[in-house]
Design a binder for these strands. Structure first.
Lengths: 332, 332
DNA sequence: ATGAAAGCGCTAACAA
DNA sequence: TTGTTAGCGCTTTCAT
C-alpha cells in the first residue's frame, strides 16, 4: 500500500475505501503510530498549537483562566504552549519570540504590568497570526479582546456597602496605571457620587495584589483621625490582609469595619468571616478567548474586525459586609 | 548568499565569517525572521518542546509547580506544552497521545487519581521519549521521579502536635489509594507509635482535597463521644474547612483543638489563626523535574538508570498549633 | 568560508 | 479508489 493511501486513511479522507481504512487504522493502533507533526505542519503551513502568554501562574486568577483555555483548546483539537512573562517586559518579548519560532497557530495573551510598548505584539499581527488579549491588553493593537467589567463590579459592590450603612468607604487600589485597577477605582467613585458621598483622597491607597499590601494599606486607614467603616480591596488576597490587620486591632468585621474584595478567589468563601466579593467568571473568560481565536482561525479570509467582549461580573454578598444593625435601606 | 550560509550564520556556526554573520543577523532582526521550527525539527528529528501532564491547574500545588517547570524549561531553551487530565484516566490517555503526536522532546507528568493502568506511559518509553514523574507516579514505569517526603513531613508535624500537648490527634486523609495520602497516614501513625499514643480508627477519616471535605470530616470528629484535641488535615485547603467547622462550634483554635495542614499553601499564613503546616518546596520539585529531564535529553546514549529524588519537607509552626498553656516538653 | 545536493515525513494536485 | 510526483524549509554531508 502506498504511503499516500495511508496518509489519507489516517485523516479519514472519504475517498479511501472503508475496508482499506480499517486496515490502516488497525495497524496504526497496533504500532501506536502518530503522524510526524513536524512534517504535517511543514506541509500544511500551520500547527495545532496555540500560544498563551500570562504574567504568572501564581495567582488563581491566571492559573484558572489558563486551565480553562487549555481545556477548551483541547476540546477543539488544539494544544497549548504556555509562557510566563513574570511581569517583565523583556521576558514578554522573549515569550513572543518563542511563540513565533514555534509557529503557533494563534496567540492568547494578558500583558505584563510593565509593558508600555507594543512592538512585539505588532510583530505577531504582522506575521498574520491571530492574536486575542484577555484582561490586560495593549491599547494600540488591532486585536480582539476579552475584558472584565471591573467598573460595573466595583460600582455594584460599593453600592451594596453604602446600602448596608457604610458611610466612609476606603479603597485599596492596585498598581495605578493598570486599566483594571483604574476601572475599579472609577466604579468606586461613581457609586459614591451617585449616593452623594464625597470622595476623599485619604481613603484611597494603592499597592500590589498580595495580603501584605492589604495589611499595610489597612494600617494606614486605621491610623486616620476618622477611620473608615468599610474597606474595599482590589482583590481577595489583599482583602485577606485587610481582615488580618483589622482583627489585630481588635475591631469587629463587619460591625466596626466591613470588608470586601474582588475576584471571588476560592478562599474567599472560607475566610473568617466569609468575604463579600465580586465574581469575575474566569471560566467564561478562557472559553471566550478560545472562541474568538477559533473564529479568526477558521475564517482567515473573512473580515477580521476586532471585537471586544465584556464579561459581566457578579456581586457575591457574604458575612464580611452584612452588618447586624442595618439602617433602613435608601430607595434604589 | 546561499541559504545554507544563512542557516549556519543563524545557528552561530563558527565556520561562518563574523562579517557574514553580522549581515545575516542584522537582516533577520530587520525582518523579524524566525526559522521555521517545523522544518528544523523535521530535519533534526527532535523539538524543543517539553510536554507536561498534570491532573489540574486549579490547586496551587500543581499550578505553582507548572509555573516553575515552565520557567526552568524556558531558561534552558525549551517551551512547555501543557495538558490537564482533569483526574480522568481516559483524558490522560488522550493527553499522552497529544504529546506523542506533537513529538515532544520529553514528558513530565503527575498521574491522575484514577490511573491504575500504565499502558499509555509505557508507550512514551517505547518511543524513547524521556519521561519524568513528579509527586504521583506509576509504579511499573522505568522512569525517574521526583517525590515528596510526605512521610517525614507528617511525622514531624504530628510529633510537634504531641510535644505541644495534644493527646488525641485526629487525621483527615485524602483519597485512600494515593501514595502521598498513604505516606502521610504512615508518618502520622509512626509518630503516634514513637510517642506511645495508641492509634484509633475513629480518629481517621478520608475525603478529598477541598475545604468542604474538611468541614465534613471535622463535623464527624466533633460528634465523637471523646472529641480530638488536634486535627491534622491532608492539606491546607482541608484544614481551612476544619477551622471553619471548629469555629462554628464555638471552640477555640488551638486551645480547644489544634489544627494543622500540609502544603504551605500561600493562604495558610493568612488564616485566622495562622495555620501550622508543612512546606513542600514546590519550586524545587519543578526545578528538579526539569533537571532530571534535561539530563536524559543531553546524554541519550548514556546509561539512563532511573533515579528517584526525594524533596524534603519542612515544618512551619504557626498559631493554629501553639497553645497558650504548654505542658513541659518531653525529652526528644 | 561558502555552495551544492539530498532528504527529513508528510500532503496536495494530478494521473491512472 | 489508489498511485505518482513535487515540494514544504530546513540541516547535514560533501565538494569547492
Amino acid at each position: 500500500m502506498h504511503h499516500t493511501t495511508v496518509s489519507r486513511a489516517l485523516r479519514n479522507d472519504p475517498s479511501v475505501k472503508p475496508e482499506t481504512r480499517e486496515i490502516v487504522l488497525g495497524a496504526a493502533r497496533e504500532l501506536d503510530y502518530h503522524p510526524n507533526s513536524f512534517a504535517v505542519n511543514l506541509r500544511r503551513r500551520r500547527s495545532n498549537v496555540i500560544g498563551v502568554i500570562v504574567p504568572e501562574l501564581y495567582h488563581e486568577f491566571f492559573s484558572s483562566i489558563v486551565a480553562e483555555i487549555t481545556r477548551a483548546a483541547n476540546d477543539e483539537g488544539y494544544s497549548v504552549l504556555i509562557c510566563q512573562s513574570n511581569e517583565d517586559y523583556q521576558q514578554e518579548i522573549r515569550n513572543v519570540s518563542t511563540l513565533m519560532s514555534n509557529r503557533v497557530a494563534g496567540v492568547i495573551a494578558a500583558i505584563s504590568q510593565h509593558t508600555f510598548n507594543d512592538e512585539h505584539f505588532k510583530n505577531i499581527e504582522k506575521a498574520e497570526v491571530p492574536l486575542i488579549f484577555f484582561d490586560r491588553y495593549c491599547e494600540n493593537c488591532n486585536a480582539s479582546k476579552v475584558v472584565i467589567d471591573f467598573y460595573g463590579g466595583a460600582y455594584q459592590l460599593v453600592k451594596h456597602l453604602i446600602k448596608s450603612g457604610c458611610k466612609r468607604i476606603a479603597h485599596i487600589g492596585g498598581p495605578k496605571h493598570m486599566p483594571g485597577v483604574i476601572q475599579r477605582l472609577e466604579g468606586y467613585k461613581a457609586a459614591l457620587h451617585d449616593y452623594n458621598i464625597p470622595f476623599e483622597d485619604e481613603l484611597v491607597v494603592h499597592g500590589g495584589f498580595s495580603p501584605e499590601d492589604g495589611v499595610m494599606a489597612t494600617h494606614r486607614f486605621l491610623s486616620l483621625p476618622k477611620r473608615p467603616d468599610a474597606i474595599f480591596a482590589i482583590d481577595d488576597q489583599v482583602a485577606i490582609g485587610t481582615m488580618i490587620r483589622i482583627k489585630t486591632e481588635g475591631l469587629k468585621i463587619p460591625d466596626d469595619i466591613a470588608v470586601a474584595g474582588f475576584d471571588n478567589d476560592k478562599i474567599s468563601e472560607f475566610t473568617d468571616p466569609a468575604l463579600t466579593t465580586v465574581d469575575i467568571q474566569r471560566k467564561k473568560i478562557g472559553k471566550k478567548a478560545i472562541e474568538l481565536l477559533l473564529r479568526h482561525l477558521d475564517n482567515l479570509s473573512e473580515s477580521n474586525a476586532p471585537v471586544t467582549e465584556t464579561i459581566p461580573t457578579e456581586l457575591i454578598i457574604r458575612e464580611s459586609s452584612q452588618r447586624v444593625t442595618q439602617p433602613a435601606l435608601a430607595a434604589d
